[in-house]
């Protein structure tokens, strides 16, 4: 693994103050303009133009009319959302599963990275790494299919192993009990991504100055001291940056796995905001309500991101923005 430092350069870069947009520079840079403006128009169309669609959240949208001919209803859709028991339940599910996933994925990836770093045989380490990346490249459809097979009550490997070990007496219906659903999603997520999530930590570990370990050794530190006080401290900035980014995504992380693994018996536990948008927005043709739920999610995400960033700044940690 190449020895790279976590880049903290400025994405936007400080622009050259002498640079002015004038007719002369435009003519001079016409090739650059030809090579970039089509993409500017492209992104404006595909990422910015849909924001007009947010207006539908303040309307009672019917597909037959244009967006300005609709009936305006103000915040009625939002009021409806927050008095709707189903939406509150889906909000709860989204937050619960996101928090579970966040905690599990951070803890497991950091532990695995620390343990991988302690492997001395490079070939063995590489092999384990390659194997651990495998599930990341499988689609959620395939992972859901695998989870279903493994958790099956008829010869599913999880139930069989638990019964062989006499931890349980009868097969458990993992996917039919709402109480297990969050845990199943958390475990599936760890299985799929734990190896992949170690990549960035291992890169950060590789960037730690080896002299620190030597100095600690002279001072009598053992392996665990070094792991705890040097390696873990060394990757702390990385952990913080990734944590802030994940917190900004906390309402985003619930669709594919939940949609593919849910069934009629666990809907109260499995459905998330995105599934709500899909079911009531597109499924029932209630575009306004679906859009309102989507807007709530986007805005809540940005607020969470800014809050996490602000907190990190306050406590003197590495931050994103």
């Amino acid at each position: 693994m190449p020895n790279i430092k976590l880049r903290t350069e400025n994405i936007l870069e400080v622009s050259n103050p002498k640079m002015r947009i004038s007719w002369k520079t435009i003519v001079h840079q016409k090739q650059l303009i030809f090579m970039s403006f089509p993409f500017l128009l492209y992104i404006l169309l595909f990422s910015y133009a849909p924001l007009w669609g947010w207006l539908t959240a303040f309307q009672s949208y019917t597909p037959a009319k244009g967006i300005f001919e609709q009936q305006w209803v103000g915040f009625k859709q939002f009021e409806f959302l927050f008095t709707d028991e189903r939406f509150i339940r889906m909000l709860r599910n989204t937050i619960a599963m996101s928090v579970i996933n966040l905690v599990l994925s951070f803890v497991t990836a950091i532990i695995l990275a620390l343990l991988l770093n302690e492997l001395k045989n490079m070939l063995f380490k590489r092999t384990i790494q390659t194997i651990s990346y495998l599930p990341h490249f499988l689609s959620w459809v395939i992972v859901a299919s695998i989870v279903q097979t493994c958790l099956s009550t008829e010869g599913g490997i999880v139930n069989e192993v638990l019964m062989k070990l006499h931890i349980i007496d009868a097969p458990i219906l993992w996917l039919s009990k709402g109480e297990y659903f969050w845990g199943v999603i958390g475990a599936a997520n760890v299985w799929k991504e734990v190896g992949w999530n170690t990549i960035i930590y291992l890169a950060a570990i590789a960037a730690i100055d080896p002299a620190l370990y030597e100095a600690a050794e002279i001072d009598g530190a053992n392996r665990f001291h070094k792991m705890r006080y040097i390696t873990l401290q060394g990757i702390r900035p990385t952990i913080m940056v990734l944590l802030i980014m994940s917190i900004g995504n906390i309402l985003n992380s619930g669709f594919e796995a939940q949609y593919l693994l849910r069934n009629g018996m666990v809907l109260d536990w499995s459905d998330t905001i995105d599934i709500f948008v899909l079911r009531y927005g597109i499924g029932n043709g209630n575009y306004s309500l679906g859009t309102a739920a989507g807007i709530f999610k986007s805005i809540a995400n940005i607020i969470l991101l800014l809050m996490a960033n602000y907190t990190a700044k306050k406590i003197g940690e590495e931050r994103l923005i």
Partner: peptide
């Protein structure tokens, strides 16, 4: 030296932080 460099970069980077949503 590209004069629109910063503007275009900002327009693209912003898209990493928001999404109009499924329905729009």
């Amino acid at each position: 030296e590209y004069v629109f460099r910063k503007f275009i970069t900002v327009v693209f980077v912003m898209t990493m932080y928001f999404n109009a949503g499924i329905i729009p």
